[in-house]
């Protein structure tokens, strides 16, 4: 027996996440997996397939769309859903469509609130989902570092950070009053580096935007914005440049900054990450609105 090695770090992260997903099945009547098309969602979806194999994951995917994702993301999303044969629900806040909410005219804060936070609440209510998997990680942001794996929301989807259930060992108390729901974060203990190492090891398909290539961008408010479609109106003094860029994180294209990079495959992305001096959320306009902004958004129902 002595010759047997303990599980490696990646294997034990994988096992923990699988354990969490299976526990949810014992507690939830109508679970759903939030699918945001990014690398974390890709890993989460891959883990779900492993967790329940040979059964298919016993829940649908939900994409809360804002109409402002990168075109490459939509293409990738539809291909993945088709190849896995899983149900994909796409929800767009109809009030957002009616009022033509967009990041240019309404700013990142309002756009995110209406299209993502309100859109998510609508979708969860509409389908009566009582548990929703999300790909958030504790290393992303300080308020997330304090959030439980099983995170409870009131009927109004509020999060109360000062009144979280103690979460001990691997014993997850997923019991809830009717009307309440749980957000479950199976990737809580993964880091950005773990995600990439796992994608590399398991050869998980991801959106090509993560790989560097020459793309048309404009520089705006310190971010490199991709000219993804003709809704991007050039402002005075701005000009479209072709630069070799990639994305460390994916969101709405007008709010997501590219980084200049030569990393055009998984191995060089990992290498670049090891040398990196800035965190992945740097390219996100929504986090820097104000200090503690993520905690406030989360209390209001943001994932």
């Amino acid at each position: 027996m002595k010759s047997i090695k303990q599980l490696s770090h990646l294997d034990s992260l994988e096992a923990d996440s699988i354990h969490i997903m299976r526990e949810v099945m014992a507690h939830a009547e109508n679970p759903v997996m939030l699918y945001s098309i990014g690398k974390d969602s890709a890993v989460m979806l891959h883990l779900a397939q492993k967790a329940f194999y040979p059964s298919p994951p016993p829940f649908p995917l939900l994409h809360v769309d804002t109409r402002w994702k990168f075109q490459a993301m939509y293409k990738f999303r539809d291909e993945i859903a088709k190849s896995l044969g899983m149900d994909l629900i796409v929800h767009i806040n109809p009030e957002g469509i009616a009022n033509n909410i967009n990041p240019f005219d309404h700013g990142s804060s309002q756009h995110t609130d209406v299209m993502k936070t309100q859109g998510l609440k609508q979708a969860l209510d509409k389908y009566g989902f009582d548990a929703a998997f999300g790909g958030a990680r504790r290393d992303e942001e300080k308020s997330r570092a304090k959030e439980r794996v099983f995170s409870f929301r009131s009927k109004a989807h509020h999060w109360d950070p000062k009144n979280q259930r103690p979460e001990l060992w691997s014993l997850y108390n997923g019991y809830k009053a009717s009307g309440d729901s749980i957000r479950v974060f199976p990737l809580s203990n993964w880091t950005e580096l773990d995600i990439w190492e796992y994608i590399y090891r398991e050869q998980i398909p991801i959106v090509p935007l993560y790989f560097a290539t020459e793309r048309p961008v404009v520089e705006r408010d310190g971010l490199l914005i991709l000219v993804d479609d003709d809704r991007l109106q050039l402002q005075k003094g701005e000009k479209v440049e072709i630069r070799k860029v990639r994305f460390r994180t994916l969101g709405c294209y007008p709010l997501t900054g590219a980084v200049e990079s030569d990393a055009d495959d998984l191995a060089s992305i990992i290498l670049e990450l090891l040398q990196s001096r800035s965190s992945e959320r740097q390219g996100r306009a929504i986090d820097s609105d104000s200090s503690g902004s993520m905690e406030k958004k989360k209390q209001e129902g943001y994932f």
Binding site: T191, G292, E295
Partner: peptide, 22 residues
């Protein structure tokens, strides 16, 4: 490390915070 608004205001740690490094 102190991530919650109340923690930063009071200068104390209230809840468990998980951090990662290698």
């Amino acid at each position: 490390v102190d991530g919650l608004i109340a923690e930063r205001e009071q200068g104390i740690t209230i809840d468990v915070a998980y951090r990662f490094f290698n």
